[in-house]
Design a protein around this nucleic acid. Sequence first.
DNA 1: CCTACCGATCGGTAGG
DNA 2: CCTACCGATCGGTAGG
Lengths: 198, 198
Amino acid sequence: MEIEVNETKKINRKDEILKQATILFRKRGYAATSVRDLAHESGIEAPSLYSHFKSKEDILQRICFHTANSFMIGLSKAEKKKKPEDKLKRAIKEHVRVVTQNLDASAVMWNEWKHLTKPDLDDFKVMLYDYEIRFKRIIKKGMKSGSFKKGDPLLLSNLILSTLNGVPFWYSQEEFSAKNLNASMVATFYKGILNKNK
Amino acid sequence: MEIEVNETKKINRKDEILKQATILFRKRGYAATSVRDLAHESGIEAPSLYSHFKSKEDILQRICFHTANSFMIGLSKAEKKKKPEDKLKRAIKEHVRVVTQNLDASAVMWNEWKHLTKPDLDDFKVMLYDYEIRFKRIIKKGMKSGSFKKGDPLLLSNLILSTLNGVPFWYSQEEFSAKNLNASMVATFYKGILNKNK
DNA sequence: CCTACCGATCGGTAGG
DNA sequence: CCTACCGATCGGTAGG
C-alpha cells in the first residue's frame, strides 16, 4: 500500500515537473528559466529535479519530441486519405487539433527547439524536415492532379504551415473553438476570402 | 578631419553592435546570448559595450521598437487606400516588404519582445495591439461592405497575421523572391487554392 | 575603449 | 527528496 502510494506520487511528480516546465518555458523561454524556477513551481528543491531528469535540456527534449511525435501521428492519418484535397483538409484538421490541445507545448517546441544540442538537435531537425516534406508532397500531388491551382508547392506549403504554427500565439479557448478555427482555416485556404457575389 | 573620422567610426561601431546583436539574438535567443558574445562579434571587449548602450536590454529594445515602427509605417500606407480589398492587399505587401528586408530583426522582435521589462514592455504591447486592431479593422470593414465573405474578423485577421509573421522562419532570398511571395500570398488568401476548372 | 574586478546566479554534484 | 556546496559564467561598474 505504501509502496503503491510512493510510486504514484513519483509518476505524478515527474509529470508535474514536465507540466510546469512547459508553462515556464513558454512564458519566459528555455534559457531564461532556471532549474530553481522549475523546482520551485514543482514544489521541490532544485537538486531533486535530477532524480527525475538527467539535465535541464533533458526536460526540453522530452517536451519537444513528445509534441513533435503528436504532429507526426496526425500527419500520418491525413496521408491515408485518397484525394489530395481530403489529405490537406485532414492534415490541417489534425494539426489544429494537436496545437489547440497542446498550446504551450506547441509554442515551446516551435520556439525553443534551437536550444537542443547534438545528437538530439539533429534528430529533431530530421523530424521537422520530414514533416515539411510530407506536407509539401500532399500539395505537390494536388497541383499535379489538378485539384489545386498550379504554383510553387514549397511556397504554398510554407504559407499554410506558418498559419498553423502561428495558432498558439493568439488562440484561446475562450475566444475561439477548435472546430470553428479548423473550418475557417480550410474555407479560407480552399475558397479564399473575396466575395464573388458582390 | 581626425574628429570626423572618429565620429564616423563611433557611428559605425554602434550600428555594427546592433547588427551583430540582431544576428546573435536571432540565432541563439536573447537570454542565451551574453554581452561577451555581443562584444566578441563586434570586435571589442564586453565593458566597452556600455559606452554605446545602457544595458543588454537597451540593445533589444532598440531592435524591437525600430522594427515595429517599420511595420507601423507600412500599415499606415495601406490605410490610405479606399477599398478594403486594396487596403488589405497593400497591408500584406508592406508587411512582406518589411519582413523580407529585415528577416533577422523581424524574427528577433517577434520571438524576444517578451524579454523587455516595464515600461518598455507595456509600450511595446500597445504597439503590437494597435497593429492588430488596425489590421482587423480593414478586414471588418471589408466584410461589412461585402468585399470579403462574412466571418469572424478577428479570426481571419489572426490567420493572415500568422502567415505574415511566419515568413522569417522559412524565407530565403535564394529560394524565393519577395515579389513572388507577395503575389502568391494575396492570390492564396483572395482566391483560394482549389482549382475550379477541374 | 581597455583592464581589473564585483556580487549574483547559473546548472549540476556529493552524500545521505 | 534534502542540505551543502562547487566552478563557471552572468550583467555590469570603477577608474582610467
